[in-house]
Design a protein around this nucleic acid. Structure first.
Lengths: 135, 135, 135, 135
DNA sequence: GTGGTCTAGACCACG
DNA sequence: GTGGTCTAGACCACA
């Protein structure tokens, strides 16, 4: 039962800094095609209210994304996805998730879990549907 | 190519706190059977020198493990694995790595990666051998 | 009468953001050789007290410098100049000051100032001694 | 190569506020004699369309210039250069560009650039012709 | 002691 | 309304 009205969410208990989670979330949205070049991102204030975070935290994420070349910000106008964003994000994100997957499998092996068990968990997760990125 | 001279290693650049990495490392060693009940752990000083970390960091990890009931420390004697350590760690670690694996697969799906691609990476990693836990 | 005990200073009235001024100041110190590879920078707290600024402002500057590869920060240890800092800064700063000089001369020309007058001001400033960078 | 079709231009990426850039641009035009007493300035709407800026930005610049006594606005008539504009601007702008020039030279000295190198850049720029003010 | 993150809230530049 | 900067002050991870 996939939830279609896709919503961004951060995990405050994660050891990963919230602003980094937001950067990743947005990059996932871009890679998955939900944000396209020239699309506007939610304003800092809107995003901060949606996520229940301080505007400064959003600002920090947006600023990093700007340095990466993923978004472009203009005072009084807003923040929008750059033309090269997809290219930039695709490489970064693909490499990141592949590394995470390899690490996760290695962890499982390190506990003595069998290859068959690992494959079963993987298949179950794949079949349980397209889960949104949850940091 | 079996895992000879298995060594603990922490990743200072990881967003995961070093003391958490150490706690996990030791639990992995227990789950995988390299540390057994009543085994002594390296002293705080030895561990800190081996890993190049501040003794306080090791102390904090050992204290947390003691609270979890995984190790017991006795002044003048040292730190040793408790009898119930395996039982405690097995559940925790198994749950952790399973969760990590599901998250990693979900991340891959979120980028639009196909199930076949994911399974291929998983199989490759499984076949590349038993990699040590690397946080 | 040059002032030898060289001190960093920022201009709060400048249209240039304070944290950018700090980034420039430190890069000047590196280019001019007053900071060398592996030198420690003043701690965030110390710098903030010296300059009368909020620690967050210093943190922002240090973070940008880290992204640029000019400094390296380690928790609990401090911030130090990287080995490649001089190379990185030299290009950036040299280009920046040259551009500023050209712009300043162009401005003078645009007001109708004569080449001779411009050269006189330049010579006077050169001869008035090595002034510290004042943003 | 005389400066034909001289055009005002602002730099949106400059740390200098756009309305300040416009104020300076107009004062440069006055000092250089391209705008004389009683000349009309472009209307707010025309200026905003020419420069692709929000009319509010132009309005703010014109208002500041009026406060300085450089222009006078009359409802239904427009904005025109005052009789004392040249006198007012000349001092302000001359002081500003001189200060910029001194600062730029100081910056160069601070990087360790030699007086000869500085003089060479200055001469090159002077000889490359009368560049328009570019903020 | 060090740096890192986050919040709350202010003021500014711009549309 | 938009984003940008800065302050004040809190808590955490680490040495």
């Amino acid at each position: 039962m996939p939830e279609n009205d896709h919503k961004l969410a951060v995990n405050l208990d994660s050891p990963i800094a919230v602003y980094v989670q937001i950067e990743n979330l947005i990059q996932f949205e871009i890679v998955s095609g939900r944000y396209k070049a020239k699309d506007s991102l939610p304003s800092v204030r809107e995003m901060s209210e949606t996520l229940g975070l301080n505007p400064n935290t959003i600002t920090k994420a947006y600023r990093d994304l700007e340095i990466m070349g993923v978004v472009s910000t203009r005072r009084g106008v807003g923040v929008s996805v750059t033309d090269k964003a997809l290219k930039v994000c695709e490489g970064r994100i693909r490499a990141m998730v592949t590394a995470h997957l390899r690490e996760a499998v290695s962890e499982c092996l390190a506990t003595g879990m069998s290859g068959a068990d690992i494959r079963k968990i993987v298949s179950d997760t794949i079949e349980s549907g397209l889960m949104p990125y949850r940091p």
